[in-house]
């Protein structure tokens, strides 16, 4: 229900930060975020407010968690088949 967009903090001035989203910068307010935020940190933005500092190691952790779901019952034949199918189509640049 709520559009949340992650971005990287470029600079901080009091409760206001400039945040970079894929090369576009926008001012984002920091009043709602529950941890100190500095340049280089990643934040989740909703309607002009940062609502969460995203620890970047969590991204790797989440992906590992998804792999675990798959490993619950590895089916190598099927996986090879899928890999072949997807390898044939072009990925996102």
């Amino acid at each position: 229900m709520c559009l949340g967009v992650p971005g990287r903090v470029v600079s901080v001035n009091g409760f206001s930060a400039v945040v970079d989203f894929w090369g576009v910068q926008k001012q984002v307010l920091l009043h709602l975020v529950d941890e100190p935020v500095g340049p280089g940190d990643y934040v989740l933005n909703h309607v002009g407010y940062a609502i969460r500092k995203i620890p970047s190691e969590d991204i790797a952790a989440t992906l590992a968690m998804y792999d675990q779901l798959l490993d619950a019952k590895p089916e190598d034949l099927m996986r090879q088949d899928i890999e072949g199918e997807v390898g044939a189509s072009k990925g996102r640049p």
């Binding site: 989203f21 894929w22 090369g23 576009v24 189509s89 072009k90 996102r92």
Partner: peptide
């Protein structure tokens, strides 16, 4: 969809 060229800036704005 993945072949449609979109500039980084336009993609950022469209996500925002």
């Amino acid at each position: 969809e993945r072949s449609v060229p979109v500039s980084d800036a336009a993609r950022a704005a469209s996500e925002l």
